[in-house]
Design a protein around this nucleic acid. Structure first.
Length: 773
DNA sequence: CAGTGAGCGAGCTTCCGCTTGACTT
């Protein structure tokens, strides 16, 4: 048995516990609580509405074991150090620990540190305090408010829209951002203009021919205007009227926070936010990086010093520059450092290719943040046109000193357009220029971009909605609820009108551009839109983008001891609950129903709406002797935008493709999208490849044969005496399939060698399936 | 899991923020 240890330190994360344990030595035992240990009970909201909103806490089931262990250790220890994070949630964790472990005040110390360095931790031990009850109360208010909002709003949706839906302070506003943006895009009308580019030639001082590319400082709104201008150019003189050089500098971005890491990993590697977090978690647990859920851009002195040393050694003294960054984010709590390598001189780490990529990104960003600014020189050449006020401009940028750009350049969400980089040819002032050609080309304004997971996180962070620990889960939730889908969508190729002046003649040119291609973008669904509109109509205060900011102000007042937390909740809850009640009783069911028009032949009304199984179109109504007909909407079609013609087409399904193997082949829209039905089996069409409206019988047969072959490959073993039992190969390896249920095979078992009896035995002994939808 | 588009009515769903694994078919 181990000797009792005098000092028990409790932190939130086990990886942190390990590191701190090393710094504190053998008089201290460092353990972790694995985050919160208690939460509100789910019964009756877990809140006593008649008694000042008293929270009803229960130990979370998955924390029972750790709580029992901590209880025992706390009893044995002389002093218990509560070292959870220094923010609202961390303070609450410390308080819950003190309550649950029944810690007497005289043997309990609350300590905090923002960085995991020996000095910071020893300093914290020297400066203990007690639990700050005001801050705890601010957290309780936050928790109770979120529970009340979520658990009162969601049931309204179950009744008025669809079961199992959800609403909440954070997720509903996230969806609203997407719906609002989608509507902006839907009503967007792109404007055309004509951009004029001039290509000139001249002989430089040595008489060598050189070329200069430039752009007119004005666009024309029609091809006619552009043509008139270019026509004028035929006889005009072009002269370099000015050369302007301006020095400029570019400074590095701050080191990563959770949100900026997610954005960069998305831009540079196309990682989803949850993928980024999983990789970062691994790097953290392996000791390669600091904590990955943070809103701070701060670096410890130790990190600053080692970064400076690394930069000086690697690139030279002139590349190092100590920089301190300040957060600009609303409501940042800054309990940790920025995300950085644990050891700044370690250039590579990670167990696989993706971890290595992410680590390298973190290293570059952290190192770059401590490097000198890049120095540039930007040159603009002005080209005047005789008797015209317009000018052609040509610009170039020369890098004088690369500075931080030597290691890292931040990505951008905006697509870049045009020239403006690189060296310019050696023109001199008053140089006369000859026309190579002058071209006018149609341009179209583009609608605002749809959100990616990462750009949505960025927006949420800017608005102070959600926390580093919840960005990824929130993004998952709104997709799981099917408020939003992440998809690629093909764009269109657009023909561009244009003319070109060359050799004194103007001719038409044909060019085209790809437009509107969307890669891994978030699209709101019909359900998302209907739920959003319902909530905006009935609960405009919760859906207001400033709701979180305004309650955060109240939480701050509670933390400062200026506001009693349950009074704040009461003031919110009374009118809110009244609205909930009123909406439950009086509001209409909401299905997003929209009338598209009448059937061209029968005159029946055609509507689209959300039905029990999702968005659908309906012809006619239920009457004494009339039965309505139904059809599912296809992927990418929205209730809000579908046309009568498109809706009518949906009723062409299911359709017959003739006979195959003496049985009819039918293509239709099934629960999982378009499919082929044949002999009681279903064969999914390949998305983006097959169109149910046009698919041929030959292609259908091909799909059937492919599926049959794939199924055959899945079979490892069958048994003649019992066709229900099979050993199959699945996504997670071999498994046993029996009467539509699946069973695991223990590791180190050869699936092909299993006998019938062994299989039956495994089925018998299998643990009962857990409840799942 | 492969239809259907409403209905007996029981029993369930749901929030946000802290943390990690466990484990899927």
């Amino acid at each position: 048995m181990r000797n009792m240890v005098d000092n028990l330190v409790i932190v939130e994360s086990p990886a942190k516990a390990k590191t701190i344990g090393k710094y504190l030595g053998k008089d201290f035992l460092v353990k972790s609580s694995f985050g919160h240990i208690r939460d509100l009970s789910k019964k009756d909201y877990g809140i006593d509405l008649n008694n000042q909103y008293q929270p009803q806490y229960i130990i979370s089931p998955d924390k029972k074991k750790i709580v029992a262990e901590l209880k025992k250790l706390a009893k044995e220890a002389k002093t218990v150090w509560l070292a959870s994070d220094e923010d609202r949630e961390g303070e609450a964790i410390a308080w819950h620990l003190a309550e649950v472990l029944k810690l007497p005040a005289d043997k309990t110390r609350r300590i905090v540190f923002h960085e995991i360095t020996k000095n910071a931790i020893l300093g914290a031990i020297d400066n203990p305090r007690s639990v700050n009850q005001n801050l705890v109360n601010a957290q309780q208010a936050r928790r109770v408010l979120d529970r009340l909002v979520g658990f009162e709003l969601s049931p309204v949706l179950w009744k008025k829209v669809k079961p199992s839906l959800s609403a909440g302070r954070v997720q509903s506003v996230a969806v609203r951002l997407l719906v609002d943006r989608e509507r902006e895009i839907l009503k967007f009308v792109s404007k055309e203009s004509f951009r004029v580019s001039g290509f000139f030639s001249f002989n430089d001082k040595k008489g060598k021919p050189a070329h200069l590319k430039s752009e007119l400082n004005q666009r024309f709104s029609s091809l006619e205007e552009a043509r008139a201008f270019i026509d004028f150019c035929k006889t005009a003189d072009f002269l370099v009227s000015g050369i302007e050089t301006k020095p400029s500098t570019k400074s590095p971005a701050p080191p990563f926070t959770t949100s900026t890491l997610q954005q960069e990993a998305s831009r540079k590697f196309s990682f989803s936010v949850s993928q980024t977090m999983t990789l970062a978690q691994h790097l953290y647990e392996a000791g390669h990086i600091t904590y990955m859920r943070t809103d701070s851009v701060n670096l410890s002195d130790l990190a600053l010093n080692t970064a400076s040393k690394e930069i000086t050694e690697e690139f030279g003294k002139e590349y190092a520059k100590r920089r301190l960054f300040k957060t600009k984010v609303k409501g940042a709590q800054e309990a940790h450092e920025a995300i950085r390598p644990s050891y700044m001189n370690k250039r590579e780490a990670g167990a696989n290719a993706n971890e290595k990529k992410l680590y390298s990104l973190i290293w570059k960003r952290a190192i770059a943040s401590q490097m000198s600014a890049a120095r540039l020189e930007k040159t603009t050449i002005n080209i005047s046109i005789s008797n015209r006020t317009e000018r052609f401009l040509s610009s170039g940028e020369v890098l004088l000193f690369d500075g931080f750009l030597k290691v890292y350049m931040e990505g951008s969400d905006e697509e870049k357009e045009g020239n403006g980089n690189g060296l310019l040819p050696p023109v001199t002032k008053d140089q006369k220029l000859d026309i190579d050609n002058i071209e006018a080309l149609q341009r179209f304004t583009h609608y605002p971009p749809r959100f990616t997971e990462a750009s949505l996180v960025k927006k949420m962070e800017e608005m102070g909605i959600g926390r580093p620990s919840t960005y990824a889960p929130t993004i998952s939730t709104i997709q799981n609820r099917e408020y939003v889908v992440k998809e690629d969508r093909p764009g269109i190729t657009r023909e561009l009108k244009g003319i070109v002046l060359s050799d004194g003649k103007i001719t038409s040119i044909n060019k085209s551009e790809k437009s509107g291609y969307e890669k891994s973008k978030l699209f709101p669904t019909d359900i998302g839109m209907v739920v959003n509109d319902f909530l905006v109509e009935h609960f405009s205060n919760i859906m207001d983008f400033n709701f979180t900011a305004s309650v955060e102000k109240d939480f701050d007042s509670i933390a400062d001891g200026e506001l009693v937390w349950h009074s704040m909740i009461h003031k919110f809850y009374i009118p809110f609950h009244k609205k909930v009640d009123n909406t439950q009783k009086n509001s209409q069911r909401s299905s997003g129903e929209r009338e598209l028009g009448k059937h061209p032949e029968t005159g029946e009304t055609i509507i689209v709406r959300i039905g029990r199984y999702g968005p659908m179109a309906q012809i006619g109504e239920k009457g004494e002797d009339s039965k309505p007909r139904f059809a599912r909407l296809q992927k990418g079609q929205l209730i809000e935008t579908i046309t009568l013609e498109e809706a009518l087409k949906l009723f062409n399904l299911p359709r017959s493709l003739g006979e195959y193997e003496d049985t009819e082949l039918i293509v239709g829209m099934g629960r999982f999208g378009p499919d082929i039905r044949h002999k009681g089996s279903f064969y999914s069409l390949k998305k983006d490849l097959d169109d149910p409206m046009t698919i041929t019988a030959d292609r259908a047969k091909e799909l059937i044969l492919q599926k049959r072959e794939a199924d055959l490959k899945k079979i490892i073993k069958t048994f003649d005496n019992d066709p229900d039992l099979m050993v199959l190969n699945g996504r997670y390896g071999p498994y046993i399939s029996y009467q539509k249920s699946n069973f695991r095979i223990p590791k180190n078992t050869d699936p092909a060698a299993l006998s019938y009896e062994e299989c039956k035995d495994l089925i018998e002994k299998a643990p009962k399936p857990k409840k799942k939808k």
